[in-house]
């Protein structure tokens, strides 16, 4: 499989990364190189094989559903590019 310029633009939009027109062709080449490289996975017979999402042989732990952390809004906001009155500030979303 390989991608065309329109697909590269679509991926960039899904990833929320602005890509300039003059970069599309280069990116298309790089992505296609990668896709050609991983093509060999199609040789492998994976019929009936379960996918591995985690290698661990353990059950995730449960904890009580209670508030265990918080009450430090200042620290949470300390690195925010823009804040207002204890909130993160973003450009207008709803007209």
């Amino acid at each position: 499989m390989s991608v065309d310029a329109a697909t590269v633009r679509r991926i960039a939009h899904l990833a929320r990364i602005a890509v300039a027109d003059h970069e599309i062709e280069h990116l298309r080449g790089e992505i296609n190189n990668m896709l050609a490289f991983v093509e060999q996975l199609n040789e492998v017979n994976v019929d009936g094989v379960e996918p591995t999402a985690s290698v661990e042989d353990m059950k995730l732990k449960m904890r009580d559903d209670v508030v265990s952390d918080g009450n430090y809004a200042k620290r949470v906001l300390a690195n925010a590019p823009a804040t207002d009155d204890g909130f993160f500030q973003v450009p207008k979303v709803v007209e």
Binding site: R16, A18, N79, A80, P81, A82, P91
Partner: peptide, 19 residues
């Protein structure tokens, strides 16, 4: 995404800001 920490580059709307 330029909201909670790290770099922010302004855009014409919020999606453009992310991008």
């Amino acid at each position: 995404d330029g909201v909670r920490y790290g770099l922010r580059v302004p855009g014409k709307d919020i999606v453009d800001m992310y991008q």
